[in-house]
Amino acid sequence: MIVAGTRAELAAARARLAGPVVLVPTMGALHDGHRALLRRARELAGTGARPGTVAVSIFVNPLQFAPNEDLDRYPRTLNEDLRTCAAEHVDLVFAPGVREMYPAQQLVTVDPGPAGGILEGEFRPGFFRGVLTVVLKLFSLVRPDVAVFGQKDAQQLALVRQMVADFALGIEIEAVPTVRAADGLALSSRNKYLSSPERAVAPVLHQALAAGAAAAAGGPRAALEAARRVLALAGGALTVDYLALVERGTYGPVRDDAFEGAAVLAIAARLGGTRLIDNVPVQIGAGQPGMAEHAADD
Rank of each mutant, 00 (worst) to 15 (best):
A4S: 13
G5N: 06
T6V: 05
A8C: 00
E9K: 01
R14S: 15
L17M: 15
G19H: 15
V24W: 06
G33A: 01
A45C: 09
G48N: 08
T53I: 05
T53V: 03
F59P: 07
N61H: 02
N61D: 05
P62I: 07
Q64T: 08
F65C: 01
R83M: 08
A87E: 15
V93N: 12
M101Q: 05
Y102P: 12
Y102C: 14
A104C: 11
V108Q: 04
G117M: 11
I118L: 14
G126N: 14
V134D: 11
L136T: 13
L136D: 14
L136G: 13
F139R: 01
V142D: 08
P144R: 10
P144A: 07
P144M: 06
Q151W: 08
D153C: 10
Q155I: 08
M163H: 06
F167R: 12
L169F: 09
E174T: 08
V179S: 02
R180D: 09
S189G: 06
N191V: 06
K192S: 06
Y193L: 10
L194M: 03
P197Y: 05
P197W: 09
V204W: 03
A211L: 13
A214R: 13
A217W: 00
R221W: 01
A226N: 04
A227T: 11
L238P: 04
Y242G: 04
L243M: 13
G249V: 09
Y251T: 07
F259P: 05
V264K: 02
V264Q: 04
I267R: 03
Q283G: 10
Q283W: 14
I284D: 02
M291E: 14
E293W: 03
H294M: 11
D298K: 02
